[in-house]
Design a protein around this nucleic acid. Structure first.
Ligand SMILES: NC(=O)c1ccc[n+]([C@@H]2O[C@H](COP(=O)([O-])OP(=O)(O)OC[C@H]3O[C@@H](n4cnc5c(N)ncnc54)[C@H](O)[C@@H]3O)[C@@H](O)[C@H]2O)c1
Ligand SMILES: NC(=O)c1ccc[n+]([C@@H]2O[C@H](COP(=O)([O-])OP(=O)(O)OC[C@H]3O[C@@H](n4cnc5c(N)ncnc54)[C@H](O)[C@@H]3O)[C@@H](O)[C@H]2O)c1
Lengths: 204, 204
DNA sequence: GGGGCTTTGTGAATCCGTGAACAAGGGCGG
DNA sequence: CCGCCCTTGTTCACGGATTCACAAAGCCCC
C-alpha cells in the first residue's frame, strides 16, 4: 500500500504535537483519504484500536515502522551528482524518515572528490565496493536518460535490490529488483491533461 | 490515465529514432505495460491503427498531444528557490515535454534578483502579477512543509488551478484545483517496505 | 485477385480497490 | 453495576481497471 507512508508521516506530526490517541476519522482527514480506508489498511496488519476511543499514536507508529521496515535506517547510494543529484544529496529531510544517503558517485572525474553537504563524491567504478562496504540495498539514479540503463545494470550487479529512478526511461532489471520511477514531466502532463479538460483552450 | 504521458515519451524516442510505425506490442514493451492495455487506452480517444501494421508514430503523437493538452506550451511558476527549486529551475528537460518554468519566486530577499539558468528570482508578493502576466495555470511548490499551505493559498488566490507539490504535506485546496504530490521519502519507504518483506532483517 | 499472415479493436470474465453501512465492543457516566 | 454512546472491525455491493482471447480487417506476396 502506498498510503502507509503517508499515515506514518501524519502520525509523526501528531506525536510531535503531543497527541496520544487518534481516531480513524481524524487520521483520514489529515491524510486526505476515506476513514473506512484507514481502518481497513490498519486492520490488515493486526491493528489494536480501542473501540470508542481510537488508536494509540505511539503504538500505531511502532507498528507502522515495523510494517514499513523502518526499524533501522536504510543506507542508499546516489548515482549522478548533477542538478538533481546535488539537491538530493544536500537534502536533510530523508534522515528524519529513516533513510541515509551514504554514498554519491559520478562518472565525471572533475566532480569526484567534491563535497555535497557531508558527503564526498566517489567515482562510478567504486559502486561495487561502496555497496558492499555499507550494506546498501537501495540505489537512486539521477543521471541522464541515456546512461540510466547502464547505471541500473551496475547497481544490480553490485547487489542493489531496490531502485528509485529519476531518469525518464523504463529500466530493464531482473524480476527480483524493485524499481520506482519518478518522472516529473509525467506529473506535469497529468496536470495539463486535466487542465485541458477544464476549458478547451486557455492561455498557458 | 497516468500512462498516456509514458506513451508520449516513448513515441518521442521512437520518432527521434526514425521509426514510422509501431505495434501495440512494441509500444507495450517499451512502456512496461500490457499490449491489450495499450490498445484499449489508445482506442479510448479514437485511435487509427492499421490492422496488420500498427500505428503511425507521427499520427499517434499528434493525437496524444491533443489529448494531453500539449498543443501549446504550459507556463509554470516555481515557488521556492532552495535546493530542489534550483535544480528544477535549471533543468532543461521540461521544455522538451511541453512545459516552461517562466517565473521563480522566493520569500528570502537575499535570493530575489539572483539568477537560476535564464530566470531571475522574484519576490513572493509578485505571485499574483506573474501569474496574471504570463497566463500561468500550473504552480510548483518547493518550499519547506510549514510554508506549503500558505503558498498553496496564494497560488490559488492568484488563479493557479493545478499544483505540483514537493512538500510532504496534504494541501487543502478548493475542489476545482488539482494537486499532485511528489514525496520522495514516501517513494523510498515503499521500496523499503518491499525490501523488508524480502528477507526479515538484513543490513541497510 | 486471392489467400495467408499479422495486428487491431473489443467482448467477456475476472480481479482489485473503494466506500457505505452496520454489528460488535469498550469506556464512561450515572 | 448498567446502559448509553462512540469508534472500530468487517461485510457487502459496486465500479473500474486489467487481462485473455478472438473475430474483423488490412497488407503483401504469389
Ligand atoms: N534537474 C531536475 O530538476 C530534474 C527534473 C526531472 C527529471 N530529472 C532527471 O534527472 C536526471 C538527472 O538530471 P540532472 O538535471 O541532475 O542532470 P545533470 O546533467 O545536471 O546531471 C547528471 C549527472 O550524471 C552524471 N553521469 C552521467 N553519466 C553517468 C554515469 N554513467 N554514471 C554516473 N554518473 C553519470 C553526469 O556527470 C552529471 O553529473 C535526468 O535523467 C533528468 O531527466 C531532473
Ligand atoms: N531537496 C531535495 O532533494 C528534496 C527532496 C525531497 C523533498 N523535498 C522537499 O522540497 C521542499 C524544498 O526542499 P529544499 O531542499 O529545496 O528546501 P530549502 O530549504 O533548500 O529551500 C526552501 C526555499 O523555500 C523558500 N521559502 C520558504 N518559505 C517560503 C514562502 N512562504 N514563499 C516562498 N518561498 C519560501 C526558502 O527561502 C528557501 O529558499 C521541502 O518541502 C522538502 O521537504 C526536497
Amino acid at each position: 500500500m502506498a498510503r502507509l507512508p503517508v499515515y506514518h508521516r501524519v502520525l509523526l506530526d501528531l506525536q510531535a504535537g503531543g497527541q496520544s490517541t487518534v481516531s480513524s476519522e481524524q487520521l483520514a482527514e489529515l491524510a486526505g483519504v476515506n476513514a473506512a480506508k484507514v481502518r481497513k489498511d490498519l486492520s490488515h496488519f493486526g491493528s489494536y484500536g480501542t473501540r470508542g476511543v481510537g488508536y494509540e499514536v505511539d503504538q500505531l507508529l511502532a507498528d507502522l515502522r515495523r510494517e514499513l521496515g523502518l526499524t533501522h535506517d536504510w543506507n542508499c547510494i546516489l548515482v549522478g551528482a548533477g542538478n538533481l543529484g546535488s539537491a538530493l544529496a544536500k537534502f536533510a529531510g530523508f534522515s528524519e524518515r529513516g533513510f541515509a544517503v551514504v554514498a554519491v558517485v559520478d562518472v565525471d572525474r572533475s566532480k569526484v572528490g567534491t563535497h555535497l553537504g557531508a558527503l564526498t563524491v566517489s567515482h562510478d567504478e567504486e559502486i561495487g565496493r561502496l555497496v558492499a562496504d555499507h550494506g546498501i540495498a537501495i540505489g537512486i539514479i539521477a543521471v541522464p536518460p541515456a546512461a540510466a540503463q547502464e547505471v541500473a545494470d551496475r547497481l544490480v550487479a553490485a547487489g542493489v535490490t531496490s531502485i528509485l529512478n529519476f531518469a525518464p526511461t523504463v529500466l530493464d532489471v531482473p524480476d527480483e529488483v524493485k524499481v520506482r520511477d519518478v518522472d516529473l514531466a509525467v506529473e506535469l502532463q497529468i496536470l495539463a491533461f486535466h487542465e485541458g479538460r477544464r476549458e478547451p483552450r486557455r492561455t498557458g
